Computed example of a mutant assay.
Amino acid sequence: MTVVTDTPHAEASAETEAHTSPKNTRKTPDTTPEETAGVRRRRALPGGRLLIGAVVPLVLLATWYGVTAAGVFTPVQLPAPQAVLTAGVELFERGDLTHHIAISVQRVLLGFAVGAGLGLVIGSLLGLSKIADALLQPTIGAFRAVPSLAWVPLLILWMGIYEDSKVTLIAIGAFFPVFTAVHSALRHVDPQLVEAGRAFGFHGVRLLTTVQLPAVVPSVFSGLRLGLAQAWLFLVAAELIASSMGLGFLLTDSQNNGRTDRLLLAILLLAILGKLTDALLGVLERKALKTWG
């Protein structure tokens, strides 16, 4: 009977193998300790992304103040920031500013809801049906090229100067980006994913809501955010329709009266409100991506 005993050579081999095994192999870090510490500091900083995003607006505000203080422009051409703030306080104390903001937000939200809803429905129809796509796509593509102001006389003739015509114009502006995004995304859904859904017994509306729409959530929300931005753009054109209230009216009224301070105030409010509504839609997008993404 042969007895196998450990030898120094075997011990050396085992030791070498232990040192060179994957478990004991250390990878060289891709980042230096300084870079890692910097990342940790940025993550630990509360509201860091918000603070970074505020840098450019603060620089622009400081530049605006410096230019006006140096007298580069006349007060009619470019009022100082404090003059715009004073104009806003005056309108707020009279109760006009809150009314302007409220009526504009109401018009945008109503128009966006109608236009985005129709964009989702019709975009889904054309994205899923080749017959509907061949029948309606050329017509919708032609109407998409019509400028916003071209609709104003027709809407006044059909609906008068009341709220219906304004909301309809905003809905037209919101419709096309949403329709285009949904239609294009559904046309490019992975066919194998659709077949897998059908294999599980999903058809028609259930297939759309369970398989196809969740597959295009990022594209849908991109279209919704573009549609919301377009709704704010169309608001100004909508409030040209014999409007007596709203931020669009405040723009044109300030221009006619030479109140550049109020004109800049209206522009700033449109930018702030547009960003706020877009941020709210971004929150919904993140929740949808966690659910269906």
Rank of each mutant, 00 (worst) to 15 (best):
L109K: 02
A102L: 10
A150Q: 08
S254D: 05
T260R: 06
L135M: 14
F200D: 14
A37M: 11
L50W: 13
Q255T: 08
T74C: 06
L97N: 00
L281T: 04
Q212R: 14
V194M: 10
G204A: 07
L136P: 02
E93T: 13
S244D: 15
G282F: 03
G141H: 05
S165E: 09
P153R: 00
V89M: 10
R144D: 07
V205W: 15
L240A: 08
F200H: 13
G227N: 02
A54Y: 04
E11N: 11
L264P: 02
A238M: 01
T98Y: 09
G141R: 06
D253M: 03
G246Q: 02
H9Y: 11
V146E: 11
L269K: 00
L250C: 05
K275T: 12
R206H: 14
G66D: 04
L240M: 15
H9A: 14
G274L: 07
M159W: 13
G293Y: 06
L91D: 10
V167S: 00
H99V: 10
A196D: 10
V217G: 05
P57A: 03
F112C: 01
R144M: 12
L280S: 09
L125Y: 07
G248I: 00
L126V: 13
H99I: 06
M1T: 11
L126M: 15
G117Y: 03
N24H: 14
N256A: 15
E11M: 09
I140V: 11
V4D: 12
L60C: 11
T28C: 03
Q255M: 10
F202S: 10
R26C: 01
